[in-house]
Amino acid sequence: MNPRLSLNQATVRRADLATALAVTQKAGIASIGLWREPVADVGLAAAAALLADSGLRFSSLCRGGFFTMSDPDARRAAMDDNRRAIEETAALAAAGAPGSAAVLVLVPGGLPAGDRDLPGARARVADAVGELAADAVAAGVTLAIEPMHPIYAADRGVISTLGQALDIAEQHDDVGVVLDTFHVWWDPQLAEQIARAGRTGRIAGYQVNDWITPLPPDTLLARGMMGDGHIDLRAVTALVEQAGYRGDVEVEIFNQEIWDADPGEVAHRVAAAFGAHVGL
């Protein structure tokens, strides 16, 4: 079992927090990435206690972000929610096993309803990250911007390339990026931008999965198990390793068939596919 493998909770979405922790342990996986909704279901204090009892490392919390709105009241509410997410990340990282990472993944958000001003939405992402950076530093948390595949630019992520994410992150001392193979594998500048991220110490997380075809009607659910699609995972992983990243590597899969399967079986499949296809 690779000691750097982490199971992102989204991969076993139907499992509650206690079950996700248990199946991760049983599969011999040493680390887990959590999502805010299952944490909220039990409460932050109880979630931290469950994580501490599990003995697992904590690799990240998903998600902050979604702060592209232009309405002042909506934007203020989003920023307040992101500050709560920073606090949650710090508490969970403190509860995790040694080597846990206080990383909050930021999904930028899409265009507000009726808004076609893509440059304006991207500028608001940069402004929001700048506004939150001091709060994150004070809490000991790294904000990690996740560039998203362009198919999600309208509804989920107006930051589409690693280069765009780095342009924002590099304006601040302690802001990084998350590399998700599903989102970045297509980028013709990927090697150059991963090297850039490594030179400036900006790689805060690395997530693996695969790009499957045909795409399902809901493209949110288009991620496959490693080895089932088109991504040269070994090549991308080599670039990330060459850039100096040595943290946990999360498997994050949004796929209805995988979600419908038994969470314990999925965890074991993740471990096997990771060993066979990721290249670590």
Rank of each mutant, 00 (worst) to 15 (best):
V103S: 08
V103P: 03
L104W: 05
L104D: 07
V105F: 05
L106R: 01
G110D: 11
P112V: 02
A113L: 13
D115N: 14
A121Q: 09
A121I: 02
A123N: 01
R124Q: 14
A126Q: 04
A126K: 04
D127W: 05
D127P: 06
G130K: 00
E131G: 13
L132F: 03
L132G: 10
A136Q: 04
A136V: 07
V137Q: 14
G140T: 09
G140P: 10
V141L: 10
V141R: 04
V141C: 11
V141Y: 06
T142I: 07
T142C: 01
L143H: 10
E146F: 11
I151L: 10
I151V: 15
Y152A: 14
A154V: 14
R156Q: 04
R156I: 00
V158A: 10
I159A: 06
S160D: 07
G163A: 14
G163W: 02
G163T: 10
A165H: 03
L166W: 11
D167V: 02
A169P: 07
E170K: 14
E170H: 06
E170N: 13
E170A: 13
Q171K: 09
Q171Y: 02
H172C: 04
D174K: 15
V175F: 00
V177E: 08
V177G: 10
L179Q: 13
T181M: 00
T181V: 15
F182W: 15
F182Y: 15
F182E: 04
H183S: 06
V184R: 08
V184W: 09
V184A: 05
W185K: 04
W185I: 08
D187W: 13
D187C: 06
Q189K: 09
A191Y: 01
Q193A: 00
A195Y: 06
A197R: 03
T200F: 14
T200S: 15
G201N: 03
G201W: 02
R202T: 01
R202C: 00
I203K: 13
I203E: 13
A204V: 03
G205V: 00
V208Y: 11
N209Y: 01
D210N: 08
W211I: 05
T213N: 11
T213C: 03
T219D: 06
T219W: 11
G224L: 03
G224T: 09
I231K: 07
A235C: 01
A235D: 03
V236T: 09
A238V: 02
L239A: 15
V240K: 00
E241P: 07
